[in-house]
Design a protein around this nucleic acid. Structure first.
Lengths: 140, 140, 140, 140
DNA sequence: GTGGTCTAGACCACC
DNA sequence: GTGGTCTAGACCACG
């Protein structure tokens, strides 16, 4: 494993309707949330992201600035952008890996049942919304 | 159960970064995809949507126009907007309900493992991305 | 008094070394801090600021976005940018006016003593730094 | 009192938005303007500044270079950087000390009136701006 | 009309 | 090399 292998690699979905800068922000938040990015880890430089995906440097910068305002990362002049915050890991890596595997199995089952990706996404979204709504009722 | 009970109820998430008109479009697409909206079903009128959520009528119109251009719904002058297309149902309602239930159980398990909603969403997104990426490799 | 008379008018000092977007942010913060801008008050539109001072719309927008991230203002699509937060007024307007007047008198005295504006600013900065430093010792 | 006691001690405010090199320049200018640095006085060496604050030597060099270009200081090879110019002292040290004291009293009064540091700074900035604006009208 | 996003490209500050 | 700021101008979303 080289250093590079641990570095986040961004993906853009141009048809999602989500603005690119927001997709970058969301991806970093998710990685941190899952413990895949930890305090001290470096984000790829703006220029590196430009090489990975076709995107304007300002857009990347905008995303990094938003993350900084949020307190999740810190830009260090001339050195790079680094993860700052370490939220309490939501669960152990092992437990999380199991859950990940279980979810993969569920998805596989859904596909065998004839659901296409769009429908799977819709069902997932529905189920997740239900937990969000339930939560809103508890913590309005 | 009256007809109204089946009528789609829109929700807007102002913090998602997704433009409101797009959120409406996505929600209709998901409902159709899951068979929760079927050919002939009526979408709520613009005024009804305005009662449900704080939104400008033009924005609702825009969403319905996009759905019509997509061929998913059809505006009938003076009567309303109706679902046209019924894409092949991805699976039987019964099978789908089982999958829905299984997914709910998985989410419950994740929460018991100490994952918060944000982390659950991240894990789900990760898993779904994996199937999408896998699909891209098969059907480039 | 017309509506316009109450609207904030920005000034840029190109020789201060402070980036323009930051000068705008600071000016809004000061106005709010002094109670000259209150909850619900509207900031001039980006295009209006462009007319007031020679500045790029993106720069103004950047300033407004920063203020929004800070929770001080709120941008409402298609309507404008409005002050949100009402911090507890630091003192009564009357008391504040007196203090303002006293400070004006002090400045006048300093000028009569032969101090130029640069030196006055330096002395003020020194005195203010002293309170800031004192505060840091109390709340490190 | 040794020579060292009079030596300028730099401070950096990373949240001011002013670039570090500019903060150093401004601080030297202020000290000279107030007569706290006089012709022949030595500025701290680059290494000394690095001990005082976390800063890159290039940044200190840059600041000293700017001050030299301005004619305010002079770099003497192998010996250090020294203040050159003595602008006409704006007032007598005694008078200045009185004004400093008066200003300190004013600040104390403002704090007792319930103004926090932010609001005090805002009021000071406002008052100083007023004299600057007035001056511009006189000397355009 | 309003705010919001993106691209393109220049220039600066810092390490 | 890094991040940070600014200008210029297009285009979108919303009211």
């Amino acid at each position: 494993m080289s250093d590079k292998s641990a570095m986040i690699h961004f993906r853009l979905n141009p048809r999602s309707g989500v603005p690119p800068y927001r997709q970058l922000v969301d991806q970093v938040r998710q990685m941190v949330s899952l413990g895949l990015l930890r305090a001290g880890d470096q984000l790829p430089s703006v220029r590196e992201v430009m090489r990975q995906i076709t995107i304007n440097p300002n857009t990347v910068h905008r995303a990094y600035r938003d993350l900084e305002a949020e307190g999740l990362v810190e830009g260090r002049q001339g050195r790079g952008t680094f993860v700052v915050e370490v939220r309490t890991p939501p669960t152990t890596p092992k437990r999380q890996a199991e859950l990940h595997k279980d979810l993969g199995a569920w998805i596989e089952k859904a596909r065998l049942a004839g659901m296409n990706d769009e429908a799977i996404m819709a069902l997932v979204t529905l189920a997740v919304q239900e937990i969000t709504v339930a939560k809103e009722k508890v913590t309005p």
